[in-house]
Amino acid sequence: MKYDRSIGSRIFDIFNVFIMVLVIFVTLYPYWYSVIASFNHGNDYLRGGVNFWPRVFTLANYTVVFQDRTILSAYFVTIARTVIGTFAHVMFTSLFSYGFSRKNLMGKSFYATYGLITMFFTGGLIPTYILFKNLGLLDNFLVYIIPPMFHFWHVIIFQAFFREIPESINESAKIDGANEYTIYFRLILPLSKPVIAAITLFTAVFHWNSFFDAMVFTSSRSLQTIQLYLTRIILTRSAATHLASRAAEMIADQSAVNSRTIQAATMVVTSLPIIMIYPFLQKHFVKGLMLGSVKG
């Protein structure tokens, strides 16, 4: 793409970079602040004034977070649910959305109303719990995969993209004798990378971060997710601030950690892996992908 070299355009570029630097500062600082808190001595942190760099460096907060070997199984469960759950969600929802986005779909307004209602009206937790009990989903890994497999909000986003795809693609494929399934898998999916990347990201982050389902619907330690594990640590530690001696038993230098610095360490440990996947998905947002597929 060529760039405009006019003076106005250059002024705009400078202004734009300035805005971006401002956004970087405003969004980076809180995260950075948490990172330094996680590396700072807890006792020292309480005295305030730790703003840009750890004042008394320690790894004690991370030692506490990683002290228990069940963290490995919790990571495994979370990774498994994130990978399987995201894949299942994206496939199931996008296929539905493609069918739903077809203009000639009979009963479309019924399906739309039917779906929209589920976005606003829920029966609440207790009926859901009873349903899961009857379906055998309680304390079962599938409770992480099946209930979040479909959400109508993502249908709306998907179909908004699908409907922008020129109808001519579909028509030319039909002439070649393809049915809609073939068209979807062969043509539509490859053309929809930006939206698939976005929904994949949303879903993966949802799976990675969710702990409520683990807390309410499972009880086995083997099904514990990383978020639940770390939520427990934070709660245990803030309880431990009060249970002074218990903290004393857990680590030699009890003053090296407190619930706030542990919370910060926990935040880093839980968010870093999922943040890492962003750059991989990000490239799909950056460039247009419709290029040359069909003459619109």
Binding site: Y129, K133, V216
Partner: peptide
């Protein structure tokens, strides 16, 4: 263990 009231409520409501 669990601290969510929702979970305890659901366990009571479903006799579980």
């Amino acid at each position: 263990s669990g601290g969510e009231d929702e979970r305890l409520n659901a366990m009571i409501a479903s006799d579980n």
